[in-house]
Amino acid sequence: MQKRQILDSQQLEITLSRLSQQLIENHDTFQDSVMLGLQPRGVFLAERLKQRIRQMNKTEVPLGYLDATFYRDDFRRRETPLKPNATNVPFIIEDKNVILIDDVLFTGRTVRAALDAMTAFGRPRKVELLILIDRKYSRDLPIEPNYIGKPVDSIFSQRVLVQWKEQGNTEDSIWLMN
């Protein structure tokens, strides 16, 4: 299988640092802001951003893990069954500014399901979307991210592989697979 590296660990560091600064720029002290990492891999990204914001700003941003499996619209329509992951949202999002965080944005269907899943924890004042890799021109739904790590041109048959150190990889790396 052919693969091309989109970001190596050094480039990723730079991108993460920019994304954190953008978040600080828009949310200042994060007084009414919370982060929701999407299961399974968005939570790794969310944890990294939380860490960086803590270092740069001395602020502790509340972070929850959100699993959208039960809210997907392709249940019973896929060939492989969906396996749910744990949801852990230890706060109420009523009237908060929510930052949804995921690693890759493709068709937008996961984000749609996540928007649905989120409402079980209250009515947020505002929702933003942060994405590490934006696969442009592939959306099925009118969903666009507010913060983008890196936009990528790709065709449908390709796949973006995100490898985090937390998953047991030797270093962070992001690939485009053919």
């Binding site: 039960f70 809210y71 396996k83 949801t87 409402t119 079980a120 924890f121 209250g122």
Partner: peptide
């Protein structure tokens, strides 16, 4: 799977559209 549903049952809104 029941572990994840148990978490759902402890939410303010205890319903999923699956």
């Amino acid at each position: 799977t029941a572990d994840t549903f148990k978490e759902v049952l402890n939410r303010p809104i205890k319903k999923v559209p699956s």
